[in-house]
Design a binder for these strands. Structure first.
Length: 740
DNA sequence: AGCACGCCGACT
DNA sequence: GTCGGCGTGCTC
């Protein structure tokens, strides 16, 4: 008896069961799992989702593999609070989390958290209460009761109370009354599926010729089984979607789940309907403005395997599928695949990794592949599938450059006479024009005509953009804004401000001057009324309720406007000289997308690009429709100096008071990492970034010959000391070849 | 990531 | 005299 006795004999004879200790990844920025005691009677295994105490809080964690940390007193470990009733994360998923954490230098717990982000979904959905007819008659038959009984006799299935009441046209109390009489029994049904199961052969594929061959090629790689990476490179309207739908169909036939990744902006009702037309049901959706309830249902459906296909934005990559068998990355070049906070990753590349680890195919899709993917396609690392022609009646628009040095706009204007004439003809044909200018507001720079004062953001020193509709000067970097002043703050002169350069609002003004009777609409992200209004406007445009649309990026993606037969690019050179090493690539992608908005219904369509650099490779690639020379040049450029081989590049954000400080910092980092081949600094003027507490944020581009050199460099930087760690953020931006 | 602790400026 | 700013440190 007593403690003496048990300590004397306990270890030899009647030892209390050894407290089991397991490692648990907690959602904290710590490098290792924490250790927890498993309470008696609780079952956990690697992958189990649990709730654990951390300090004063209860957090959701995941039981991990390996030994728990040593050097901790097992008796002092706190117990796991509870284990959720949901399937554990698979070994594949755990390996994926570990891989991503190691590759992106992120705390594994923060990566794991992305996989279990629907806390309320961790317990099963409650059963649904229903009634079932057991026979017999109630004591008194009323007309309402007769109607109910007719229905259940005709269809002897369990009915939900509200469903039956609705079908019979009676109130719920009628049903409850019959239940009380013993005519119905109460049964519990599993909750209804969140989405119906898509059927691979719901309708026949609408593909022919080249599309058919391409589909056959990808389907073959799926049948073969195992990992493969393919790149579908197909011009806008070439039937890329139909081709990868066949890959999805084949995966569904083989009983595996499918993930379709899309940039958030491309995840439209139109896309979901297109999927439904082919497969008879919508895919599960996963994006940032999903309701919490829906998020839980989809998450649950994904882990249990009930949801067979998910269409989602980048975060969907971390959903713990029960048996994932295919990932499609549509618009693979889109920068929205990069997450640039907390865990820095590119979902496109991590998708390839997930396929590699899970041993299933990954298909990247784009009309304008990223240079990295293009290299992987050309080198054979990825299976390159090209769709060079448009499908069906969709003709490529006829594209021409307008050399602005020869066809200058009239004084004070920005639209060339050639473009204005084309717009006039389009109006006469009662077709639509789109003018694209990737700049919000009225004018990007305002100055005082008398003293030359330039309006600059007091917080981050970039130019203030005039927004005339709102009478504001806005900083597009940090969000600072002020009412447009009437006096110059420097010399006090009244009404002497002059706007420099165009924004969409100013173009709208010019258009209204030339075409006062046309219905003109400006589409930009600062449209009042939010997403809902935006959707309505886009729909109205598609229905032909506008003649001239003037828009930023926003109109470039996703939406189809059947009557749009003229696309004018106001300043095709914009963005070419902003210091971003990917400027040419981005411009090419954006211009391709915008010009691709036209000509999708067989109407003859045109694209006119205003440029001061008609010989620039981007312009030549766009008008010739042949991008191969452009890609070749971009690849060479990266090989040479700017971004040594294909994105073995780290982009790091640091904050400093002046550019000189940032450059000194960069030199220090360079000295600490001799194997890194170059560090360049992009400051607010070239690649504007937000300002943090009186300090400007700069982006360091660090290039290395080998991925491992980059990793070593970043480790050095992270270990540089707590003073730096606070102000230095790391983003890895590396190409997928090192995955394979 | 949160949350506490701890040390110096402007105020009810 | 305090209230409160955010730098630093800790969580099994």
């Amino acid at each position: 008896m007593g403690t003496d006795n048990s300590s004397l004999f306990g270890s030899l004879f009647d030892a209390p069961p050894l407290k089991r200790v397991v490692p648990v990844l907690v959602p904290l920025p710590v490098p290792v799992p924490y250790s927890y005691a498993v309470p008696e009677g609780m079952h956990v295994e690697p992958g189990s989702v649990v709730q654990v105490p951390v300090g004063p809080r209860q957090l959701i964690g995941v039981v991990w593999d390996g030994e728990s940390q040593d050097g901790l007193d097992p008796k002092k470990l706190r117990p796991i609070t509870l284990a959720f009733d949901c399937p554990p994360l698979s070994k594949e998923m755990r390996d994926f989390v570990d891989w991503v954490a190691a590759y992106t230098l992120s705390p594994p717990g923060l990566v794991a958290r992305m996989a279990v982000r629907a806390p309320a979904a961790l317990d099963p959905e409650p059963m649904v209460e229903a009634v079932r007819y057991v026979g017999g008659q109630p004591e008194r038959l009323t007309p309402a009761r007769v109607r109910v009984l007719d229905i259940v006799k005709a269809e002897d299935i369990p009915w939900t109370r509200s469903g039956l009441a609705h079908a019979a046209g009676v109130s719920m109390s009628v049903i409850d009354g019959l239940t009380a009489q013993g005519v119905f029994e109460t049964v519990f049904l599993p909750p209804p599926p969140v989405v119906a199961k898509p059927e691979p052969d719901y309708t026949a594929p609408r593909i022919e010729g080249v599309q058919k061959e391409a589909a056959a090629e990808i389907v073959a790689s799926i049948r073969e089984g195992g990992f493969s990476a393919s790149l579908i490179d197909g011009v806008t309207g070439s039937g890329k979607t139909e081709v990868y739908f066949e890959a999805i169909a084949e995966t569904l036939r083989r009983g595996k789940q499918v993930l379709i990744l899309l940039p958030e902006i491309a995840l439209t009702p139109a896309f979901l309907e297109r999927f439904q037309d082919r497969f008879g049901a919508k895919p599960g959706e996963w994006h940032s403005d999903l309701s919490p309830r829906m998020r839980e249902k989809v998450w649950r459906g994904v882990v249990t395997g009930e949801v067979r296909v998910v269409a989602g934005a980048r975060s969907a990559l971390f959903l713990p599928f029960e048996e994932l068998g295919l990932i499609i990355v549509d618009e693979e070049h889109d920068p929205a695949y990069k997450q640039e906070d907390r865990v820095f990753y590119n979902a496109r590349d991590m998708a390839v990794v997930r396929g590699r680890i899970g041993d299933f195919p990954v298909v990247l899709v784009s009309a304008t592949p990223s240079v990295e993917s293009q290299v992987n396609g050309l080198s054979g690392r990825y299976n390159l599938v090209q769709l060079p022609t448009r499908f069906g009646d969709a003709a490529l628009p006829d594209l021409h450059l307008i050399d602005m040095r020869r066809h200058a706009p009239e004084r004070g204007g920005f639209l060339s006479p050639l473009l204005l004439r084309a717009m006039g003809r389009t109006l006469e044909r009662k077709e639509q024009s789109l003018l694209f200018l990737n700049r919000r507001g009225y004018a990007p720079l305002t100055l005082c005509r008398v003293c030359g004062h330039r309006f600059q953001c007091p917080q981050c020193s970039s130019w203030l953009v005039e927004h005339r509709f709102k009478s504001q000067l806005q900083c597009h970097q940090c969000g600072y804004h002020q009412h447009t002043p009437e006096h110059c703050p420097d010399c006090g002169t009244f009404d002497h401000l002059v706007a420099c350069g165009p924004g969409v609002e100013r173009i709208a003004e010019e258009v209204e001057k030339h075409f006062p009777d046309a219905r003109t609409i400006v589409m930009s992200s600062d449209i009042l009324g939010g997403v809902k209004r935006m959707r309505l406007e886009l729909e109205a445009i598609a229905n032909g309720e506008a003649d001239i649309v003037i828009g930023t990026q926003l109109v470039a993606k996703g939406h189809n406007f059947p009557l749009m037969t003229l696309v004018g690019i106001v300043d095709a050179d914009l963005g070419l000289a902003n210091g971003d090493p990917r400027a040419a690539e981005r411009t090419f992608q954006l211009l391709s997308q915008v010009t691709g908005r036209a000509g999708r219904t067989g109407l003859k369509s045109h694209g006119l690009l205003q440029t001061y650099q008609p010989m620039h490779p981007v312009m030549q690639a766009i008008v010739s429709g042949d991008a191969s020379a452009f890609y070749e040049r971009e690849i060479n450029e990266r090989e040479k100096a700017i971004l040594p081989p294909f994105g073995r590049l780290a982009s790091i954000i640091i904050s400093a008071e002046t550019r000189a400080d940032a450059e000194t910092h960069a030199r220090g980092l360079r000295a600490a990492a001799p194997r890194v081949t170059g560090i360049s600094v992009l400051g607010p003027a070239e690649a504007p970034l937000a300002l943090v507490r009186g300090r400007h944020r700069f982006r360091l581009l660090v290039h290395g010959r080998r991925n491992s050199d980059m990793q070593a460099f970043l480790r050095v930087m992270l270990d540089a000391g707590p003073k730096q760690r606070g102000s230095v953020q790391v983003q890895l931006d590396v190409d997928p070849q090192s995955f394979l």
